[in-house]
């Protein structure tokens, strides 16, 4: 277990690992995204209440799920960078925030588009959408903080502290937004109720969630590889690796 952590911390090993992982992940992720989208768009039956507009669920929910999980991954990388001073964890932190922000953005915009035919408005201050918006702000905060420092090591450590503080706060924020919503809107419209989802819709949804996790891993690895190419462009191992 520890030997893997040590290897992960070594930039040359990680560069090779990233190259191999990207070569595998790229075709798999693209294929899964295409298959999942076709399944969700063309094959799955429409929802009996929402008709065809519900098909947005196959990108909205996976993006939201992975965006939230991504914050925890970022905080874990932050903890590793603070406690064990692993260099690759610093690089991971910088790569994770923009990817998480992009996925949160997808979740927000698709949610808003979905809202138009469902609620009749582009934006509704629903508990889930509001929490998602705050998650987006948390990601933007980490990105802004990492840009503000000239010193990269200090930037990574500052982002690590901020993302850990955010992690402690996220459950409180989600719970408080839930209460806020029920306080102002006593359970009148609820589309995300407990109604069991049919397997004909569940399987494409699960496939898309997996595809989005893969997409998350892929784009983080791509960004980390770019970051390594920039940071170690003077060093011998990278030059040997490239040529």
């Amino acid at each position: 277990m520890w030997s893997i952590v040590h290897k992960m911390g070594s930039p040359p090993w990680f560069y090779r690992f990233a190259n191999r992982a990207i070569a595998w992940l790229l075709p798999i992720v693209l294929l899964a995204l295409v298959v999942g989208s076709i399944w969700g768009l063309l094959i799955a039956p429409p929802d009996y209440r929402q008709g065809n507009s519900y098909r947005i669920i196959f990108i909205h929910v996976p993006a939201a799920v992975v965006a939230l999980a991504g914050y925890y991954v970022m905080a874990t990388a932050g903890l590793m960078s603070l406690v064990w001073k692993i260099k690759m964890a610093d690089t991971a932190m910088r790569a994770l925030a923009p990817v998480g922000a992009a996925l949160t953005f997808i979740a927000l915009v698709t949610g808003s588009i979905w809202g138009k035919p469902t609620w009749g408005a582009w934006w509704v201050w629903d508990a889930r959408i509001t929490s998602m918006l705050i998650l987006f702000f948390l990601y933007l905060g980490v990105m802004a903080l990492s840009e503000a420092f000239d010193n990269k090591a200090a930037a990574a450590k500052a982002c690590a502290v901020l993302s850990l503080v955010g992690t402690v706060n996220i459950p409180i924020i989600y719970k408080s937004v839930d209460w806020w919503y029920s306080l102002h809107q006593p359970a009148s419209i609820k589309f995300t109720g407990e109604s069991a989802i049919d397997t004909s819709m569940l399987y494409p949804l699960l496939l898309m969630i997996l595809a989005f996790y893969g997409l998350f891993a892929l784009s983080v690895l791509l960004r980390m590889r770019t970051e390594l190419l920039l940071t170690y462009r003077q060093s011998a191992w990278l030059n040997a690796e490239v040529s």
Binding site: I59, I106, V109, W114, K116
Partner: peptide, 20 residues
């Protein structure tokens, strides 16, 4: 619902393209 669904999917595809 086509315009909404297709707008959502094409925007997502665009963001994914940028990400990769």
């Amino acid at each position: 619902h086509g315009p909404y669904v297709w707008a959502a999917y094409s925007l997502t595809a665009f963001v994914i393209f940028l990400l990769i």
